[in-house]
C-alpha cells in the first residue's frame, strides 16, 4: 500500500460573532416587528408564529418586507430598530 501525504483542501474559517440581542422580559405591551421575505414557506412559519402570539393577545406593530435574495435595505432596518423584538422567518 503506497501512502501519499496530501494537503487538506478545506480552508480555515473566520467567522464574526453576532451576540444575541437581549430578549424582552415579556411580550405583552412590547412593540413587535415583522420581517417577511415573501417566500411561501417563510410565510407559513410566520403565520404559525402569528397565531401563537395572537393567543397571547400580541400582534405585530410593524410589518416590513424584504427581497429574499439580499439583505434588508437600511430603510427597513431603521424601522425595525424602533421595535423591542423582530420576528424573521428564514425559509424558502
Amino acid at each position: 500500500m503506497a501512502i501519499v501525504e496530501v494537503l487538506v483542501p478545506v480552508a480555515a474559517t473566520r467567522t464574526t460573532a453576532h451576540p444575541l440581542a437581549a430578549r424582552p422580559a415579556r411580550l405583552a405591551g412590547a412593540r413587535i416587528g415583522w420581517l417577511d421575505n415573501l417566500k411561501a414557506n417563510a410565510g407559513a412559519l410566520l403565520d404559525g408564529i402569528a397565531a401563537q402570539l395572537a393567543a397571547d393577545a400580541v400582534a405585530p406593530a410593524l410589518r416590513m418586507t424584504k427581497n429574499a435574495t439580499a439583505a434588508a435595505p437600511e430603510a427597513v432596518m431603521a424601522h425595525l430598530r424602533t421595535c423591542d423584538a423582530v420576528v424573521l422567518a428564514i425559509a424558502d
Binding site: M1, I3, V4, E5, V6, V8, P9, V10
Partner: peptide, 28 residues
C-alpha cells in the same frame, strides 16, 4: 496535511466531503 492510501485517495476525499464526486489529482 493528511496521509492516505494512494489507491484509495478518491474514497478518502469523498468520505470527508472534499470532492465534487469525480476522481481528483492528489494535492501533494
Amino acid at each position: 496535511t493528511i496521509k492516505v492510501d494512494a489507491d484509495a485517495l478518491d474514497d478518502a476525499f469523498e468520505a470527508r466531503g472534499w470532492s465534487d464526486g469525480l476522481p481528483v489529482v492528489a494535492p501533494t
